[in-house]
Design a protein around this nucleic acid. Structure first.
Lengths: 205, 205
DNA sequence: GGAAAATGGAACATGGATGTTCCATAACGG
DNA sequence: CCGTTATGGAACATCCATGTTCCATTTTCC
């Protein structure tokens, strides 16, 4: 009963990012702690148990279930959170301004800052292929349109398919983050390597 | 007792690829069917159950356990199999011959043909970081050395770190295979996009 | 300081994947 | 063609993640 109520309220808050009735500051902080821990733990190991997430969040396993009734609820909230960050990053990059190659670099830089969340986007296809995502923020469409604009301007390789170049950007980002996380390469080094290669790959031929 | 014997024999055969006592042709075929099914099923879904693998192989779940006592045994055999294919592909590419960029393209082409096995290499880091792999075949080292050769020749971008370029190649391969598998892009189209971008990314600046 | 909110932990129920054993049957091969 | 080999399936035990309930304790906040 009361659990159902709490769970529903939590799901609603996570989905719409709007405290339905009025979410206490305490609860908001706990929720964030759980979501952040989930990003770290699940990006490192997809099959991690909720107990692992709870431990990483410095919280009891029971508490996790209080906020997210089922595992799928946590995953859904995680997806919403990641998509929101992705949208914010896209806005910060001001993709409409200036020459396309520069805009692509700004976008790449902002996305790189998403850190572990980047891995989740890549590893959990469900997050990007979520029904209604294109309609909501359209971050993906933004990228394709930016590339197409560059191709029209003559500043981006027009021989390559725009969707392919989009995947290239994602792949290079993923590679750079992996390099930083698993090989111990300093983040700024990995990022500048990534940007260097991205420039060459995108350049008009 | 007898099961232990069978299991041990199977593990030895899988590890050394040499029928210890004398593996029947029937058993060899069944083993291959299971390994091939495992590649398909596990590359699509890491958490798939052994029952799924058995079904895909057209074999009883019991039979799977007869060949691979534990899940970890199957995974280990899978790793050995994939590494072997990777080695063969590397040999076919004749990386020592001709200019480095051409050799890189040959290598990329051969690796692309590994298909789903490619995804496993990428998704299960355990396979490539396996202790003793570098000593055994050294496929990874081969790639780095090839890139370094190109950098010496002046035919490959010397501003980028060789290990980074190695990761770029893997990432582009992964992206191309994903594009073919999930987006329905014809394989040859995805491959030529991949090679096109690879050429530009590797080119000396 | 004290009521309300939030948490932690124990205990329990459940389901799915694993791994094992046994036996009847089918396929193989000399 | 017949003995050996290989297989399928049922039944069973076990483990682990999940999800739920209850209660004592701590924390927050008025």
């Amino acid at each position: 009963m009361e659990h159902d109520h709490i769970a529903t309220e939590a799901a609603a808050a996570a989905a719409t990012a709007e405290p339905a009735t009025t979410e206490t500051a305490t609860r908001a902080r706990t929720r964030r702690a759980i979501l952040d821990a989930a990003v770290t733990v699940l990006s490192a190991n997809h099959g991690a148990s909720l107990a692992d997430v709870a431990e990483a969040a410095g919280v009891g396993r029971t508490t996790v279930h209080r906020y997210f009734a089922e595992r799928s609820d946590l995953v859904a909230a995680l997806g919403a959170d990641v998509r929101e960050r992705l949208h914010e990053a896209t806005v910060r990059a001001r993709v409409e301004e200036g020459p396309a190659p520069k805009a692509l670099e700004r976008l790449c830089l902002e996305y790189f800052e998403l850190g572990d969340r980047l891995m989740l986007l890549f590893d959990v296809p469900q997050f990007l292929s979520w029904a209604g995502f294109d309609e909501e923020t359209g971050s993906d469409r933004v990228l394709v349109r930016l590339i197409e604009r560059g191709q029209s301007e003559g500043t981006v390789d027009a021989e390559a398919d725009a969707e392919w170049l989009q995947n290239v950007l994602w792949s290079l980002l993923y590679a750079a983050w992996m390099q930083a996380r698993d090989y111990g390469t300093p983040r700024h080094t990995a990022l500048s390597s990534c940007l260097h290669t991205l420039r060459k790959a995108m350049a008009a031929s």
